[in-house]
Simulated scan of single mutants.
Amino acid sequence: MLATILAQYGLADTHCRVLPFGTGLINRTWKVVDDTQEYILQKINGQVFSNPVHISENIGALADYFDAYHPGYLFVKPVKTLTTGAGYVLYENDCYRLLPFVPASQTYDTVSTPQLAFEAAQQFGRFTRLLRDFDTSSLHMTIRDFHNLTLRYKQLEQAIEQGNPQRIRQSRELIDFLQSQHGIVKAYETYTSQKLFKLRVTHHDTKISNVLFNTEGKGLCVIDLDTVMPGYFISDVGDMMRTYLSPASEEEADLEKIIIRDEFFYAIASGYLGEMQDEMTTTEIDHFVFAGKYMIYMQAIRFLIDHLNNDVYYGARYEGHNFNRAVNQVTLLQQLLLKEKLFSDFVISKSYLQTQG
């Protein structure tokens, strides 16, 4: 099967080694090594992305823009097939793409130092800044309502009414806390409906493994562009805060390990604002920490919804898996709330100093 796909790129399976690659959970990925070059081959998850061709069209439009206006930026774009000239192959109702492997590059699965957090935040900020004049309306929504907090809260209310009655009773304390934080939903609705947050080209999946680094740990570019869509800065900044601030992942059940590392927040803010401050409104800068509250809260809601609905979306490796994930994210949110003023003061002071400087 893979040989048939590779042949459309002029790669003969007799000269290629195809090896499983990476730790991503959404798309299936292989590294392809032929006599002269290395590639990354991916099968796009059709269960997550209902129209994978839209992803290819988005990436093609972004590639054309970078070629025209920022040719020096390292944009890893799919290889075009010899048969159709498209950046993808459709085979048995699945969509595949081939990307060049960037020599002397690496990725990380965890954020172990503030410097890594800084480099990643800088890269995501640079990506959005360079695309500031790109027409966001020309991009497809590859996952509609992906970060729509209003929708997620409505889904929570529905799960509370129609979900597993026993799980609802057992989750009462968690439900009460999430409902008590409904002000985050109201704030999100106000800032977006009144256009106090600007619609920009946004990555939407800013985990550390979606940044390509050189061998010295310096950021090169962002990768995995499947979720690049019109969006708000709170999605990218919030996801970095959600996944970089604590040394414990969302799978950690020992709540004492869920802490906020101040220096990692300072690194995120410094890296992102170093690129984006002049592009952001005063309201956006004032709500930089809100981004973390928004994303962590939304993920807690999503985990709890799945628990109440018998684990139909994320699945569960053990009984109560998604409940524990939800508690994990609520704990992280509570830790962030304790630091909110400290972090907001840092952002405001940093922005003032950069403006004066």
Rank of each mutant, 00 (worst) to 15 (best):
H15I: 10
F134I: 07
R200N: 11
V33H: 01
R169G: 00
W30S: 03
P52Q: 10
F134R: 04
Y69T: 12
V48A: 04
P78S: 03
D133S: 14
I175G: 12
G60K: 09
T331W: 02
F21Q: 04
T215L: 14
L338A: 08
T81R: 03
V312P: 02
A61V: 01
Q166I: 08
V53Q: 13
N45G: 04
Y318D: 05
D205M: 02
I5Q: 10
L130A: 08
Q8A: 13
T150E: 13
E161D: 13
L336W: 00
T110K: 15
D224L: 07
I5C: 07
P165D: 09
Y188R: 07
L245W: 00
R242T: 11
I44L: 12
R200K: 14
Y188M: 08
L196K: 13
Q335W: 02
Y96C: 02
D236N: 12
R200A: 14
I208R: 00
Y297K: 02
Y96W: 14
V111G: 05
G271Q: 01
M276H: 02
L196Y: 06
S193E: 15
A291D: 08
S344M: 09
Q158W: 05
D236W: 07
E284W: 11
K31F: 10
P52R: 12
A86G: 08
G231P: 03
Y244M: 06
P100Q: 05
L131A: 10
G219A: 11
L308E: 03
L308Q: 05
H15S: 13
L74E: 08
V18K: 01
K154E: 14
L308T: 08
N58H: 12
M298W: 05
R169N: 11
Q8L: 15
Q158H: 07
D34F: 06
N45F: 01
V211P: 01
Y314E: 08
G24F: 09
S171T: 03
Y297R: 00
Y352S: 15
G183S: 11
G271D: 02
F290I: 03
H321G: 09
F127C: 08
N310W: 00
L353F: 07
S349C: 14
A63D: 13
H287T: 05
D67V: 11
A326C: 04
F21H: 13
I160S: 08
H203N: 09
E252G: 14
E157K: 15
I301Y: 01
H287S: 13
R28T: 15
A316C: 05
L174E: 13
V32A: 03
F101V: 09
V185S: 03
I285C: 04
Q179M: 08
L131M: 10
I223W: 06
Y9S: 15
I259V: 15
I55E: 04
T136M: 12
L342Y: 08
T281L: 10
A7K: 13
D262G: 03
L304E: 00
D34W: 10
N214P: 02
N324D: 14
G125W: 02
E250Q: 08
E279R: 04
H54W: 13
Q47S: 10
D278H: 11
R126S: 09
H54E: 15
S249W: 09
E256Y: 07
